[in-house]
Design a protein around this nucleic acid. Structure first.
Lengths: 236, 236
DNA sequence: GTCTATAACTGGATAGAC
DNA sequence: GTCTATCCAGTTATAGAC
């Protein structure tokens, strides 16, 4: 995680690399970052094939050729978008789980560890601003993409997931590995559907459950899935 | 559900409407159905924008103009594909839930009702052949599509879901509606990620959990999510 | 680094023959 | 109902000017 991505995370204005000619005085982000932001937004809404390089460039307020200059191909742009924030989430999740285990010691629970795993992502999703919302929408999209989706997710997120599984195995020594992985699979699907923001939960519930409700998600998920993990143990 | 779709379900060969000229003696399905099959396959793998009408026509072995003749537009084709099997799944789920409640009477449980709800879909997915696999992959894709995905899912599947929620409310009178809807939301995400066949679960678990394993899904899901629903009740 | 211009191609859709 | 031929808008990508 370099200084540039950290700035993007915190939303702090970023220094220009050179002194001269800022093109428009509006945004202080570099043009490269503006292209990444625009790509994040559009790809996360319409998918890879539903977005043209032209559309990304237009949304970023730059010329299409510039996108090719920075990222060579449309593939390269997409990969850059997906990669940009992955390390930040992973780092935050690791720190959170390590912190939980250190703080709780012998009193650690599966629910606590799951909450420590979920916390950073849900926090960034809910409070990181619209670009983080877009990023997690993109993760949701990739997570549900047949064929290459699984490989792409694995490439960036497997270590943290294995860290979670290892922690849970320690807390639930009787659990079979297959059950742990299946349970994580369920958790993953539920979490990314939340990130996808399809509007279905709100409509279906007549507004009684609102998918953007940070507190509601945070409060319910860890408990819900800890109970699910535990129920697996009871199965013959 | 008309005779044509039922034939598609059972896989029974379908009568030609007229006597004369069968183009190729290979498949007995009508060209229209062949186009739908090909669309189902391709859309479910690559999404709406990742598929061209030409590609669908080629996969179906027909001329591109024929797809336009039957479905007017690419949108029309996609909608026809999505709609085709929805009624069959809904019907099967309704029958299954009704049957469970009638058979179990006072001894009905949330886990039993959830299993009755899940059963038909998982059954068709696992044993209905490759076209049903493709169809559920498509449902997974739509379920996770921002903006219009939620509306499309709701249009076809809301009645059955409300039927499930109503049944669960009867079995768990103390449950708050928000909790029931959130719990269903989690279930929905987990189920459709399973249908998506991204290959991630298999890879992540090193083969210890296999996403295509019908028995594993069926056995675990109802128990897992019934425990989750129950845990919501215990929350303050 | 950034933009203009354009090459080379693919897409959805239709008119009209059979 | 099915296929041939085609229109034309929109696509990725690059060469080269500034």
């Amino acid at each position: 995680m370099d200084a540039k991505t950290r700035d993007t995370l915190t939303g702090a204005p970023q220094m220009q690399r050179r002194v001269g000619r800022r093109r428009k005085d509006e945004a202080s982000a570099s043009l490269k970052d503006r292209i990444l932001d625009a790509g994040e937004n559009l790809f996360s809404r319409n998918g890879y094939h539903g977005v043209t390089v032209r559309a990304v460039a237009e949304a970023a307020g730059v010329d299409p050729a510039l996108a090719h200059y920075y990222f060579r191909t449309k593939d390269g742009l997409f990969a850059a978008v997906f990669e940009r924030r992955a390390a930040i989430v992973n780092q935050a999740r690791m720190t959170s789980m390590d912190g939980y285990e250190a703080a709780s010691g012998k009193r650690a629970t599966a629910e606590g560890l799951i909450d420590a795993f979920l916390g950073p992502a849900i926090e960034l999703w809910a409070r990181g601003g619209p670009q983080w919302k877009a990023y997690f929408r993109l993760v949701a999209l990739v997570n549900n993409t047949p064929q290459w989706g699984g490989a792409t997710m694995g490439k960036y997120f497997d270590p943290v997931i294995q860290r979670l599984i290892t922690g849970l195995r320690r807390l639930m020594p009787a659990a079979r590995d297959a059950d742990l992985y299946w349970s994580y699979h369920f958790l993953s699907g539920a979490l990314t559907l939340t990130f996808a923001e399809t509007g279905r939960l709100d409509k279906l519930s007549g507004g009684k459950a609102r998918s953007g409700d940070y507190a509601a998600v945070r409060k319910r998920m860890a408990r819900f899935f800890a109970a699910g993990f535990a129920a697996m143990l009871a199965t013959a």
